[in-house]
């Protein structure tokens, strides 16, 4: 499951083709509309500046989890036998997490290697729709009743999706392992 401690870490760059495709897209768009493409580049730079602190937090958080919990303990809390505790951890982690979804992919991938079940990932991702810092703004725009109900139904939907995915996607890990090979 884990690399041997003596094994030297090696970077396997991922998404190079995807990045090449996006760069190619920028090139053609630049030829078509230089002004808009420059604006897009500026927006990208702005998002990079915004997301960098979140990525650093994710790195520190991932390291902290790996330092504090043994793989068996992680599997116990977040694996197939995690039970109600696992659902609650996924739910609250989702509600409390900040930043865009993709910033959390490295940590989720790492936890998945330690046995994190797919249903909990789904619950985590959907529970992220509840943004605690933005709740006052949502109340101001849509009212208290709407905000409370939407949050409540989002919690229910998060759990239901997790339960359904666990039933539907029993072979998702095999699919991922094939991709890795």
């Amino acid at each position: 499951m884990n690399a041997a401690p003596s094994e030297a870490p090696r970077i396997r760059w991922r998404g190079r083709k995807f990045l090449a495709g996006v760069l190619l897209l920028y090139f053609f768009l630049f030829l078509a509309d230089q002004h808009a493409t420059e604006a897009a580049l500026f927006k990208t730079a702005k998002v990079i500046a915004e997301i960098t602190p979140i990525l650093l937090i994710v790195i520190f958080f991932t390291a902290l989890i790996n330092r504090l919990f043994r793989p068996e303990a992680l599997a116990k809390h977040l694996g197939q036998e995690s039970g109600l505790r696992g659902w609650l951890i996924a739910l609250f982690a989702g509600i409390l997490s900040h930043g865009p979804m993709y910033a959390w992919y490295p940590m989720i991938e790492d936890l998945k290697k330690h046995g994190l079940r797919d249903g909990l990932i789904v619950t985590f991702f959907y529970a992220r729709s509840i943004k605690i810092p933005l709740l006052p703004l949502m109340i101001a725009y849509f009212g208290l009743g709407f905000t409370v109900l939407l949050s409540l139904y989002t919690v229910i939907a998060s759990l239901l999706q997790g339960l359904i995915l666990d039933r539907l996607c029993g072979r998702c890990d095999e699919d991922k392992e094939q991709n890795d090979d």
């Binding site: 760059w13 991922r14 998404g15 995807f18 580049l41 990208t44 990525l55 520190f60 790996n66 490295p106």
Partner: peptide
């Protein structure tokens, strides 16, 4: 190890961020 994991995803993250800008 966590930093290396994040670093290995850098091309992908940059591609997503590029699309976000577009």
């Amino acid at each position: 190890k966590a930093a290396m994991g994040m670093l290995s995803l850098l091309p992908m993250l940059l591609a997503i961020l590029g699309l976000v800008g577009l």
